[in-house]
Design a protein around this nucleic acid. Structure first.
Lengths: 189, 189
DNA sequence: GTGTGACTGAATCTCTCAATCAGTCATTTT
DNA sequence: AAAATGACTGATTGAGAGATTCAGTCACAC
């Protein structure tokens, strides 16, 4: 059996269930049925192992986001679908959810860096879609990276932070129409 | 001399310099030249004293925001001016800046509550301006509270968070044009 | 050569005791 | 008598030392 793969799967399981800090290399070794030293022949340290798993997750997320896009639909609908899919990922994907929790209460630096990186990957992804939309004339000229950042921060704000200061959740339809009437409407040619 | 006022000024100074947690009632008493017991004849506890000072600060902030508005200018410019003024306040006003710092590293609950309250006051303030603009026909019908929340989160994101993940700051002109081309343009009739 | 787990020391946790501080109230001052 | 005070209290927090944990290594086994 592929030992490297076994280790990755074991670590992935453990990081998802217990988070970065609470996952020990001894535990990963045990789950993977290898000696601890073996892990270090494939991954130079815990953080590298962690990052490789996160990169895998980012790939998954990109795939999921791409699947939410359909070529016939207008930019606005696709952008909304992508952002909602990403936000869903935050809650549904065990590892992602665990990392957000860990960042909030433990403030593990490695986790912070990784979350920043994930966010940047999302911004880049959305930024690319915006560039494509501009070149197709679907939306007006604009600074793609700024707009992508704006969209992400705004969506995150409504889906993640709104609940903390209000005692009712916003329906997806409310969110969609808000963005349709503001940011997206402003982007149209 | 007005003892109540003396206490308020002393406490305000101390909260601004040392934050909520590091301010002791003994210290406030000393600065105000009163016995500690005297404080408790005017304010039932430390948190109430703190809140009264924060309410004063909110008033100041509202005044500053109102001064940034001019009746002749279009909604968009006024909204931008108000939000930038509020964001400037975050950095310039000693107490506000100190509280943000304390919330980040100490996570004092009393400070968290107060910061949430300040944010809500700002959202309400902006929400009111939006309602007025709608009734004047300056902007289209929309959900004022949602749009206010969106504007605040987006502005905060760019002015407070952008610097953390990028090594260059955004000029105010860049920010202004981004919002002009997106959210504001979408709000126009 | 490959895989292993006992070993190391640096970092973190835990437990104890000391110090701090919000809030009270008996006493003093006006 | 009304207002002001600061020594006092107990609950919470901090500091320090000792114990524990764990990432990473390396001598040995297979």
């Amino acid at each position: 059996m592929d030992r490297r793969q076994e280790i990755l799967e074991a670590a992935s399981k453990s990081f998802s269930l217990f988070g970065y800090k609470a996952t020990t290399m001894d535990q990963v070794a045990k789950i993977a049925n290898v000696g601890k030293g073996t892990i270090y022949t494939f991954f130079s340290n815990k953080e590298i192992l962690f990052q490789e798993i996160v990169v895998k997750m980012i790939q998954e997320m990109k795939t999921a986001a791409d699947e939410a896009i359909s070529a016939e639909k207008p930019f606005q609908q696709n952008a909304h679908a992508v952002l909602m899919k990403v936000l869903e990922f935050r809650e549904v994907h065990l590892l992602y959810a665990k990392l957000i929790e860990e960042e909030k209460e433990l403030r593990t630096p490695a986790v912070k860096h990784v979350l920043i990186r994930i966010e940047q990957e999302i911004v880049n992804f959305v930024g690319d879609k915006i560039k494509t939309a501009i070149s197709k004339g679907e939306i007006r000229e604009c600074e793609p990276d700024l707009v992508a950042y704006l969209l992400l921060k705004a969506y995150f704000g409504f889906v993640a932070d709104w609940g903390e200061t209000h005692d009712f959740e916003l329906s997806e339809e409310k969110i969609a129409s808000l963005f349709r009437d503001t940011i997206f409407r402003g982007l149209l040619p």
